[in-house]
């Protein structure tokens, strides 16, 4: 069985933030909620690298393990989804998640959290596919249409890969073989040396 995965090639990501924009636009994610974000390491220094991070759809997801109301579930091909009708906004998944994927719209004063929102791998949620309810709660369901997540599909440098783990790792392996395994044979070091 396939296992859906994201992979971001740090050698190719150019920090254009298009994945972030595409995600926000595709799912009409509200202000202050970011399903996907680009993190730049060593910003402004030699060796700067950026990686696009969202929910990584873990096999043994910590969010699902700590959820007090047990609202998470995994699709047969390994996409971690959750039920917003059950979510109580306790914030536990945010504490447990290594990638900072769970987000909460703030609904009222004192930092009271709304229902958790996170990357769905463009697979919607527990509502009828393509229904209004699904779109409002979870965003578009591209997977049901046979499409992969928009962030990866429209990545200009094909840095962000999404799909079955086998396929994605095949593509990435071929890529690494072609450009050579050592980063110094490709990229900044090859062009400018160890400056």
């Amino acid at each position: 069985m396939a296992r859906m995965k994201f992979l971001c090639d740090a050698e190719r990501c150019i920090e254009c933030q298009a994945c972030v924009t595409a995600c926000k636009s595709e799912h009409e994610v509200p202000w202050g909620v970011n399903r996907r974000r680009v993190i730049v390491m060593d910003d402004g220094l030699p060796g700067e690298k950026s990686v696009s991070v969202a929910c990584m759809h873990c096999s043994d997801a910590p969010c699902a393990a700590v959820c007090p109301v047990d609202c998470f579930y995994t699709t047969a091909d390994g996409i971690v989804l959750h039920d917003k009708d059950l979510c109580i906004g306790c914030g536990y998944c945010f504490y447990a998640c290594p990638f900072g994927a769970p987000q909460y719209p703030q609904q009222s004063a004192f930092g009271v959290r709304g229902k958790m929102d996170k990357c769905t791998f463009c697979a919607g949620g527990p509502e009828t596919a393509h229904s209004e309810a699904e779109y409002v709660k979870y965003g578009a369901n591209r997977i049901a249409e046979g499409k992969l997540p928009l962030c990866a599909e429209m990545c200009s440098t094909k840095a962000l890969l999404a799909g079955d783990g086998d396929v994605v790792s095949d593509i990435y392996r071929q890529r690494v073989m072609r450009r050579g395994g050592r980063p110094q044979t490709w990229g900044w070091q090859a062009a400018y040396g160890n400056a």
Partner: peptide
């Protein structure tokens, strides 16, 4: 790291080990 996204629950760490 550095991230341009803002929001109350946006973090700039790629991997948080405490979770």
């Amino acid at each position: 790291g550095f991230t341009t996204q803002t929001g109350p629950y946006v973090t700039n760490t790629m991997i948080s080990n405490v979770g």
